[in-house]
Design a protein around this nucleic acid. Structure first.
Length: 218
DNA sequence: CAGAGGATCGGCT
DNA sequence: GCCGATCCTCTGG
């Protein structure tokens, strides 16, 4: 039973262990297989350079959109919107949803195969003031700044301009590793109508920055 | 070329 | 929990 005042146990970033300086992840460091990539990204860092500032968050929630997946944008083949999903792994796929929000994915698999890992939430570590400014809403705690895929993109200033970029080398957006090893849980994906039963969502256990109903992240 | 609907969010009941 | 906002993209005729 959890204490009523705190929604979740301490997040992975609250470990007091010294850890190595963060190191940019190159393409060769990332699993190319979609589910392995989605799981691997939990605990890694998202590093954004924008307007002369550095924003860093720890990824705490992802979803896999695999080959032959009716819920995937790539299910019916390549289109103008989803072509970044067909890029070699470690490219960004950024798209607009509901006319209101952006979503960030990391492409997976070989060139020509449409699959990706959606980044659904991050725990802000560096640049929280800038993230709060970008969210444009009052009263948000740090842990709410990048909770949910649309909120994450808003906080990090991610939009169509970053669609298709190579996360291996682009100066504007990178993945990094600081040696943190979180405990990873899994569940069904959030917000889907098709293939809603597949267990393809991954999250950092104990993180207060994950989205979705609490029952999905025990 | 019209129409439906979506990997969301936030406000309201 | 429910619902509307908002704007493309994709589909079918």
């Amino acid at each position: 039973v959890r204490p009523p005042t705190s929604r979740r146990a301490p997040a992975p970033s609250s470990n007091s262990e010294p850890r190595p300086r963060r190191r940019r992840l190159r393409r060769r460091d990332l699993p190319h297989e979609t589910v392995a990539l989605a799981r691997f990204l939990i605990g890694k860092l998202l590093v954004r350079q924008i307007d002369g500032e550095t924003l860093v968050g720890r990824i705490v929630e992802t979803e896999a959109y695999v080959v032959d997946d009716p819920a995937s944008h790539a299910y019916r083949g390549m289109t103008a919107r989803n072509k970044s999903m067909f890029a070699l792994h470690a490219h960004a796929y950024v798209y607009r949803i509901y006319g209101t929000s952006w979503c960030l994915n990391v492409s997976s698999e070989a060139a020509g195969i449409g699959a990706a890992a959606l980044i659904r939430a991050a725990e802000p570590l560096v640049g929280t003031a800038a993230m709060r400014r970008r969210r444009g809403r009052d009263g948000l705690s740090d842990l709410e700044l990048a909770r949910g895929p649309g909120n994450l993109c808003r906080a990090f200033g991610i939009d169509a301009e970053l669609d298709g970029i190579d996360l291996d080398a682009d100066p504007r957006l990178a993945l990094a590793d600081d040696g943190t090893v979180p405990e990873v849980g899994s569940s069904v994906r959030i917000g889907l109508t098709r293939a809603a039963d597949r267990e393809l969502r991954f999250y950092a256990r104990g993180s207060a920055a994950v989205s979705g109903r609490r029952a999905l992240s025990p």
